[in-house]
Structures are given as C-alpha cells and as structure tokens.
Amino acid sequence: MLKIGSYEFTSRILLGTGKYPDFDVQQEAVEVSGTEILTFSVRRMNVFEPSQPNFLEKLDLNKYFLLPNTAGAKTAAEAVRIAKLAKASGLCDMIKVEVIGCQKTLLPDPIETLKASEELLKEGFVVLPYTSDDVLLAKRLEELGCHAIMPGASPIGSGQGIINPLNLSFIIEQSNVPVIIDAGIGTPSDVAIAMELGADGVLLNTAVSGANDPVKMAKAMKLAVEAGRLGFEAGRIPKKRYATASSPTEGMSIS
C-alpha cells in the first residue's frame, strides 16, 4: 500500500499524461498500467477552440487521482500560482512541485523548490516535490512536511535510467515519507532497480508514451514495479566475490 498524506493507493505507478500518439492508445496504456495517479500540467486554454479534445474529459475521475504539476515554473512564486490554479479546479489538492532551474538539463532549482514546497504546505496542499538526488535536500524537504519526495533518476525524458543508485538508496533509507523515483526512467529494468532499492513508487511518462507500443510498455512497467517491489520485500542475497555451490558437495560418488 502506498500512502501519500491521507490517501492510500494499491498501485505504485504514477503515470504522466504527456506526448502519447493518441487518446485511445493513452487510455489503454493508463488502464493496463494499473495506475491510480495521473499527472497533468496547467496551461492557458485556446478559447477559440473550445471543442479541442482534452484527455481529462475521457477519464472516469472517480477512478483516478489527479496530480497536477507546476511545470513551466522557474520560481517558487510561479509554482505557487500554478498550484493554486490547479486546486481551484476543485478536482485535487495534491501537487507535484516542479521548478526547473536549467532549460538544457531540466534539473530542478533546489532553492526555489524548497521555497515553493514550504509555501504550499502552509496553504494545505499535499506536496510532492520533484527534486534532484541530493540526499540532504531530500531530508530538508521531508523536514518541511512534504508528503512524498520525488528524486529524479536522471534528466527528464532522457531515458538514461538510474545513474546514481547510491544517492537514491541513501534518500530511501533516511526517508519517513514515500520516495517516488521520478524522471529519466527508460526501461522496465530501470523500474525494477528503483523498486529493488526500496522506492515506494515510480513516476513515468516518456518511457511509456514514447515507446513504440505504449500499451505493451505500460504492462511491462506494471510487472516491473511488482517484481522489483517483491524482490525488495523478499530481501536479496549478499553479493560475494567468489562462487558458492548450489549443489551439495557431500556424497559425491566420483572423486
């Protein structure tokens, strides 16, 4: 069970809603992934095209929790404004704080992320900050009262997978709130590794939406989350430098 604030989820996949080839594929991918939490962005509407299709309208909102992000914000003040706009929809009170500090790497600005999280916690939001894999920053965000910590595995949309498992494991080990690995995941094996490290969940978008077959990849990611989580709970064997025989060494007739 994944518990974020007062909300409980059976699925440990959070799924982004950007960049799918079409709504039908997206809808099927969402369903197959088993996700209960979908992320969205907040943007100006084109008022002259009100009939423009919107994925949100295709969803049964009783089945999914919305996790809007503050993507597009470069400062804490911008992030807070976007979060408040999202909340005014009356559909959600969770927010993924995303304050980008560098347009090339899309890495989060740690100081603005911290400030925005603090402000939004005061406003009563359920706050999930997207952060780097900085261990102390993760600690500071938790101390503020954030409801989950979402360190990136590698730059957003890069598909580079988990480039610093050590830092992620430190964050997971120290954290008393859920740790959700966000950004940079490319393959099911990346997801399995994240879960084996003890992550409470993963947030995926491009890895699924950008796959040749997003529906099949959504299924693969669901299985990877389950496999990785079970592996973590089961407890792996220690690594050793030399071999240990699996078969008994006693009672051999030939020697």
Binding site: T17, F40, R43, N54, F55, N69, L85, I156, N205
Partner: peptide
Amino acid sequence: VELVHFVGGG
C-alpha cells in the same frame, strides 16, 4: 482574465 485548463504532462 486568464482561462486555464489541464493538459497532458509528466
């Protein structure tokens, strides 16, 4: 007046 809505995003 700003009119905003939810769009796909990660």
